[in-house]
Design a protein around this nucleic acid. Structure first.
Lengths: 192, 192
DNA sequence: TTTCTTTCTCAACATTTGTAAAGGTTTTTT
DNA sequence: AAAAAACCTTTACAAATGTTGAGAAAGAAA
């Protein structure tokens, strides 16, 4: 069952009581996005987040020069959402789009926040989630973004997400690294 | 009184009960760092965080090429710390150093985390704190870092932190923007 | 298979930013 | 005040990356 996979993942952050799990489960709704479908669009005021059961989302925006910049990929087991916009009830700066057919369990983030204030264990989960992904994960990423060359960042990406690399087009990788496909090609040919 | 300033700031995140405030107050210790002193050193396993009452910290590291990269400034009212390292009990990637004589209220982060699990209002504070600084503030910053030129980023920094700019040396600003002082000078001369 | 479309690579040239070194200015120390 | 140190700007050149356009390769559709 899908919600089993969900709660198995959640419990890698912290254990949940029966009641908390039940309350949360009631918010979950299964949904499938076809390749190219948008989960969230730029300019929308997003309300939902989505746990990726199977598939792959990318979160990206298009800058003033028309370049696509990918901020993040959400593969299986990650919770996709435009959290800053959801928290602020403001317009999302990003699109979230399925790069493959993607099955999710989605839920209203504000309803989830209500559970956070009711259930101490869900509050505990939320804190651990923020700490792991928004504090710790970002640390290394930010350092790398600012002091490593594109070549080093590619090697790193390959090392950290070897399976993800196989599922992506080169231009997606380039957009994530913040370089042009041309430059990525050069990186390949230098290392030959 | 110094702790008044502290709790006044804390209450911009969420209100605290008397007991919670008291418990937290017991952790606080006043300290002063002279210009050039380190609050945290690279390689240390940090335990403390510091609320800046007066003065200015910078958080930076030195990359393999010997370049100093400034990640963040902590002026009055901000809580300085190497949070990712503290959470993971790992070695800090960053130095935190006083750019001016800096007076702080510092406290043990793990003791604080204990209060988070005891007092729901401190838990609420911590969540709001993470959301505001680690989720929302980072959003804009990350976008800007990846799609704006150094020139635009400087204009932005000037607009968002006009008072901070006056207190900083040019090479600090350059290190924050991720460019060389030479390049920053060029930005100045172009706009004349 | 054949055609069409998307993706990837490459070359030539342009732009941005870094490097190194010099010199001027400002600040700090003696 | 004089000397020393730190800071800032500028110049010439080097390196990294972007731009454009062409074409090859791979994948999808007919």
């Amino acid at each position: 069952m899908m919600t089993e996979q969900f709660f198995k993942k959640i419990k890698t952050y912290t254990d949940l009581s029966k009641e908390a799990e039940c309350a949360w489960q009631n918010l979950l709704k299964e949904n499938t996005y076809q390749k190219g479908d948008n989960f969230i669009r730029i300019g929308q005021k997003p309300k939902k987040v989505a746990f990726v059961v199977k598939g792959l989302f990318s979160q990206y925006y298009v800058n003033d020069n028309g370049e696509t910049i990918i901020k993040y990929f959400f593969p299986e087991g990650r919770i996709a959402g435009s959290i800053p916009a959801t928290l602020q009830q403001s317009e999302s700066l990003f699109d979230i789009t399925a790069l493959e057919e993607t099955t999710v369990l989605e839920y209203d983030f504000n309803e989830f926040k209500k559970l956070v204030s009711v259930y101490p264990d869900i509050s505990e989960f939320y804190i651990r989630y923020l700490e792991r992904h928004w504090v710790i994960d970002k640390e290394y990423y930010e350092v790398s973004l600012r002091s490593d060359s594109a070549k080093v960042r590619y090697a790193d990406f390959l090392r950290r997400y070897p399976d993800l690399v196989k599922r992506l087009k080169k231009h997606h990788i380039a957009a994530y690294l913040g370089i042009t496909p041309t430059q990525l090609s050069r990186i390949f040919s230098y290392s030959k």
